[in-house]
């Protein structure tokens, strides 16, 4: 239980520190969003700039700006975009769908590919299958998501017309088309993410397969399949759970460029747009939200690992 409390507290501190860091970088540094917005317009005078600054709260001390951002967050008010004057929260809400779906599918696909591959590779360490799988994995790790995305579009959308090259179709609108539009983006993310899980899980599996309890299981007469699935895999998967957190971070980061490649208007695209326009109000909230998701997933898998392991959880605790 102590572990749970400690882990939750650390994550909370991490989250607060992250928000301070994002805020500090965006505000404490030169460059004025209002000037940036009006800079090219004609007939701008100081009075207009000041009016806009005060309406965005930019004339107040930084600390008070920070706290009003955080205070607003607690009841879902993230302020307005400096640029479009839209509610940041509603902008985020409408962009959340594609990013979440992309992340979930990217992580799911990575796990789905990595787990069987790791089992196949770990059966005979240094055998030809192991070597081939490891080689493919290191090749996959060299594929940044956007490079993978572009190559996939060239092959599967332009050369053969299997999947659409661009555009997100919401799940609620057309589940089949939604899935079709998600396939290439998910593969782009999984290309780099799956090898990360695979490598880790493979080495954990090799350790597990060499363990005494696996020998006991074989000594009882358990067939190879059962030894792998019932004994080696759970023991190897438990420490590998952390990798899910890591992959989520990778996928969330990768979605920024993948959304750009595939023309999704998700959080990644929103953050790129906000960075372009120096729309700090939007940028800080989007980046914090994505970091929060990352921290939350890492926390969840850690706690899940704690709960699944009878040694840490305590007897039926």
């Amino acid at each position: 239980m102590q572990f749970v409390i400690k882990r939750v507290v650390i994550s909370a501190i991490l989250l607060v520190a992250t928000s301070v860091l994002i805020f500090a970088i965006l505000r404490a540094l030169p460059g004025d969003p209002v000037a940036a917005r009006l800079g090219t317009a004609q007939g701008v005078n100081q009075a207009m700039i000041d009016r806009l600054r005060s309406s965005a709260g930019l004339d107040r001390p930084l600390v008070s700006q920070y706290f009003s951002w955080v205070a607003g967050m607690t009841h879902g008010n993230l302020g307005r975009s400096y640029f479009t004057d839209r509610q940041v929260s509603s902008m985020i809400l409408s962009a959340l769908g594609p990013t979440l779906e992309l992340t979930v599918l990217g992580v799911a696909l990575s796990v789905l590919v990595a787990v069987p591959a790791a089992m196949a590779a770990a059966r005979r360490p240094r055998g030809w299958l192991d070597r081939s799988i490891t080689a493919i994995a290191s090749a996959g790790m060299a594929f940044p998501p956007f490079v993978a995305g572009i190559l996939l579009i060239i092959v599967f959308s332009i050369t053969v017309h299997w999947f659409p090259a661009r555009g997100f179709i919401p799940l609620t609108q057309d589940p089949v088309q939604n899935l079709r539009s998600m396939i290439l983006p998910s593969i782009s993310l999984a290309a780099g993410a799956a090898p990360l899980i695979l490598r880790y899980l493979r080495s954990e599996l090799v350790t597990a397969l060499n363990s005494d309890y696996v020998r006991t299981a074989a000594g009882k007469g358990a067939p190879e399949r059962r030894v792998m699935l019932r004994h080696a895999l759970p023991n190897a998967a438990l420490p590998s759970l952390t990798m899910i957190g890591l992959i989520t971070g990778y996928t969330l980061g990768g979605s920024v460029v993948v959304e750009y490649v595939f023309g999704f208007s998700g959080l990644g695209a929103l953050s790129v747009q906000a960075a372009f326009r120096r729309d700090y109000a939007v940028l800080q909230s989007v980046v914090l939200l994505i970091s929060a998701l990352f921290i939350l997933v890492s926390l969840t898998v850690d706690l899940l690992g704690w709960w699944l392991d009878p040694r840490t959880r305590g007897h039926r605790g």
């Binding site: 460059g31 953050s271 994505i290």
Partner: peptide
């Protein structure tokens, strides 16, 4: 180090680019 690594790199970079050009 933990805090800086809690933000996915590319997003951190976006924030910095927005701030520094």
């Amino acid at each position: 180090a933990d805090v800086t690594m809690a933000i996915p790199q590319i997003l951190f970079a976006l924030v910095c680019v927005a701030a520094f050009g």
